[in-house]
Design a protein around this nucleic acid. Structure first.
Lengths: 316, 316
DNA sequence: GGAACCGATAACATCGCGCTATGAGTATTC
DNA sequence: GAATACTCATAGCGCGATGTTATCGGTTCC
């Protein structure tokens, strides 16, 4: 289990001895390795003095391996093939022939963005294994920070003061993947459902159904801007539940467009734009330096190229 | 079969990544490897930029291996153990636990010096394999020159102009092992057999039995010095044959003392010193640089320590 | 909020390691 | 047997890789 390698035995020596074994001359070895003849000659002498053993003896005008040289030459193949195997594996990683990506994304993405990504990955880079974990943005960031995950897909709201650009510092890099509009969900028989666009202020007296904590935070911010504090009657991060509660007349809600792609809109609910309009952005978070890891760079590139317009996502 | 190793992957990187995998921090890795923390940090950055792949990511105040880093760490054990195996084998050679010696010696030594040497080698360095070839001095030198043999035990005569010191140039090294006297062999009933010392000149009219070519050359030189040219009736390099021929009254002979150790003196022959006295020397020849090869140095040392006085050899 | 720990960076010194030019010894050639 | 060509060794040189210490920013823990 000793990690101590004899510092007196370096790769160059092994390569040189092997080349001499192959060609029979120092000059030939030098040519094979792309060095000048004196370079090989001197290196050999240095190695011999380090080892305290001659590796070659002069015979005639050429050179012949001593017993020690022959021993080294015999080991050379093993050593070089072990190194070749290692650098081959590294080349596979660099060439995207192998590799793995550990990805975290928020729940709504699990049934929209992520499946589409995985299909693309399987097609373009079949050798790369993707490991997916569902996590809300804060947890996803934590996983990223502790190194349990390589990439995190998160969302954020413009005024959000918890992650927008503060994450880009501290070694984390944030890239914008999509933006999407928030929409208001009303019961189909709601009086305001007749108009195409709804003033949020006109919903001041409604009962609200809120989503996840961060979504609730955004709702509060929007309503505050409109001059009121919403009465939140229910909370659930299940979009389908929200839609059905609205359809049942339990209240109104504000959802991102993407959430609507995960659930079928029940007959009793309608979707409307609102003013002042509000948006949500979807980010890709990665450790600084992920760009240099081929598998992560490839995943990132595919994500950036993804078309989410059928879900109401805007690429930019 | 490519010998080309990715020059972008060096041992240091492998060691560092492995140390980081073990300790979890760069500082710890630096301590483990005996470097300063910035050294490891910078080396890591260089390697990453060479590879085009990050190997670590900062997490909290420590550091974590990326997938590439983990791959490299997994390979690290294989690579280091391959190197450890190589340097272990080299250490065995250096420590005389393994190794081989290819030895050539002249025929008479085969049944005298060499067996004694082999016994000592087996006792002192049981891990070292000795490969022995019998060869007359000229052939032994040729074998040495062409690299087929590591050590050669030869003999030479003082006036011999073929190998005494000319060999010490040209990359061959010659060391004196023993000297021995030449003796005259007479039939027991020979008139001169009664005296203890024989004047060579008094043997001018005898028929001579000569040995190997070089021995014959020496005989000619000695006789020339005594003022005559010997009549050579027979030639054989088999000492036992010579002795029996002399015992049968076919002639007289001059043999080295060592030759007498290889054959029992038949009753009909006697040995006498002669004047002017002549000597033969026994050498160890080796390629320059053999002193630095442990197995050859050990063999040489045992040879120099050998006691051949019971064969009439003089150590010096 | 302060102390301790970790990693990154800056500035700097050194020496490993490559190069070219050249010399000495060996094999091949006519 | 001299001329030629080839191989290895040496000298001299330059540069860049790879260490070092000092210091700073950021994180964790009490």
């Amino acid at each position: 289990m000793s990690i101590l390698i004899d510092p007196q035995l370096d790769l160059q020596s092994v390569r040189i001895v092997r080349a001499i074994a192959d060609t029979g001359t120092i000059t030939g070895a030098a040519r094979m390795l792309g060095y000048s003849q004196p370079a090989v000659s001197q290196h050999l002498q240095r190695t011999e003095s380090r080892l305290g053993l001659p590796l070659v003896t002069r015979v005639g005008r050429t050179v012949r391996l001593t017993e020690a040289g022959q021993v080294l030459a015999r080991h050379a193949l093993t050593i070089t093939s072990a190194l070749d195997a290692a650098s081959g594996d590294l080349a596979d990683l660099a060439g995207l022939r192998t590799g793995s990506v550990r990805l975290a994304a928020f729940p709504t993405a699990s049934s929209t963005i992520v499946p589409r990504l995985l299909a693309l990955m399987a097609k373009d880079h079949p050798g790369i294994l993707v490991n997916y974990i569902e996590a809300q943005p804060p947890e996803a960031v934590a996983l990223l920070r502790e190194g349990s995950v390589d990439l995190a897909i998160t969302f954020g709201y413009p005024g959000d003061r918890s992650d927008p650009h503060r994450e880009s510092a501290n070694g984390l890099r944030m890239e914008l993947l999509f933006t999407e509009e928030m929409v208001v969900v009303l019961a189909a028989d709601h009086p305001l459902a007749s108009g195409p666009v709804i003033d949020v202020a006109s919903l001041a007296d409604e009962r609200w159904i809120a989503g996840c904590p961060r979504c609730r935070g955004h709702l509060l911010a929007v309503c505050e801007l409109a001059g009121f504090t919403p009465a939140i009657a229910f909370e659930t991060d299940n979009a389908s539940a929200v839609l059905n509660m609205v359809a049942s007349g339990l209240g109104v809600a504000m959802l991102p467009r993407l959430a609507l792609a995960t659930a079928t809109l029940p007959p009793g609910a309608v979707i409307r734009a609102h003013t002042p309009t509000s948006k949500r952005s979807i980010h890709l978070l990665a450790n600084e330096g992920a760009r240099r890891v081929p598998s992560l760079a490839a995943t990132s590139e595919l994500l950036h190229g993804l078309d989410g317009s059928d879900w109401g996502l805007v690429t930019r």
